[in-house]
Amino acid sequence: MRIVVTGREGQLAHSLRAVGASSGVDIVCLGRPELDLSEAATVSATLLGTGADVIINAAAYTAVDRAESEPEKAHAVNAAGAGLVAQAAQRLGVPIVHVSTDYVFDGGWQHPYREEDRVCPLGAYGASKHEGELRVAAANPRHVICRTSWVYSPYGQNFVKTMLRLAGERDEVGVVADQLGSPTYALDLAEALLRIARRVLDQKVLDEKVVDEKVVDEKAADTPLFGVFHVAGSGQASWADLAEAVFAASASSGGPSARVRRIDTKDYPTPARRPADSRLDAGKLQERYGIVLPDWRASVGDCVSRLLAGRAGTGSSTSASP
């Protein structure tokens, strides 16, 4: 199985390479300049020659706050670019696994969001990701749209790495405590995406044995394996909860630690509004694929251990959410 991944330097691309290497999957990560989702001419020209069996669209404009002043750039990558990737996958006759975000929700529902719940993004980033979902679904009936949230890893820049850095600089850190979400370890997410890719590829091969391509396309939209899924770590946390878990894991291994001063969102204003409660219900993923991501607390411990042991690279992801 050859999986082509759009995006080369982000947390998820690094994690997919790591998980793929340990499981014998051929992972090809493509990025700028040869593949630039904001430059339409590069997308199909690059992807059509890859020999992909499945495409995972992990490339994204992830600067949530900067998107408020650069909405056109976020749209070019997250919406228009995502649609072009899905079109290329359709031309290749292969499924697309597209990574989206909890920021498509406004956070006012006060229970974990299910896939069919109302989408209402609060800012330019979330709006661009929602438009991307729509374009991917329209371009390729064999789509698996995976919404995830609060992604962290040993790679790039993210919340866990920021907390460890701050713990080495100060005794106390103020962290927002009135936003709830589903922290997701990028290595757990990568493993789930590879399992999804295997299943949809197996389904494609099975379908092609019994029906011609035209019928496959008509059937695909109704296939239970396709559609929108929530793929996030088990359990829930506030940012303050996550910070406390990071510091506890670090202290237990002799690393830096700090006290958490719990603050409200209003005490830490940002250009973009964040959803107050963007927890994701991943029951559909378990039902259709048999996949349950580990509890975020255990995964935080693994991430911190890797960071303290120096078992990580330095990607360029710019946000704790994809």
Rank of each mutant, 00 (worst) to 15 (best):
V246M: 10
G181Q: 10
D222R: 13
S250A: 11
E191P: 04
D202H: 03
A186V: 07
K266P: 00
T223S: 14
S238H: 09
V210T: 14
V205N: 13
P256D: 13
S252T: 07
I263Y: 00
A248V: 11
F226G: 04
A177R: 10
E208G: 05
E244A: 14
F226P: 02
L194P: 00
Q179D: 14
G254R: 10
G255T: 11
A243W: 00
D178W: 03
F226K: 08
F229M: 09
R199V: 04
D212I: 01
V173M: 01
R262T: 02
E218K: 14
R261K: 07
E172S: 08
D188K: 06
G233I: 07
I263T: 05
P183S: 12
K209S: 15
H230A: 10
S257Q: 08
A245C: 14
E191W: 14
V200D: 07
A248K: 13
G233T: 08
A248G: 07
G233F: 06
A240C: 10
A258I: 02
L194I: 05
V231Y: 04
G233W: 08
V216W: 08
G181E: 06
Q179I: 10
V260Q: 15
A258Y: 06
A249K: 06
I263R: 00
D241S: 08
I196H: 01
L225G: 04
E218P: 00
S182R: 02
K204H: 13
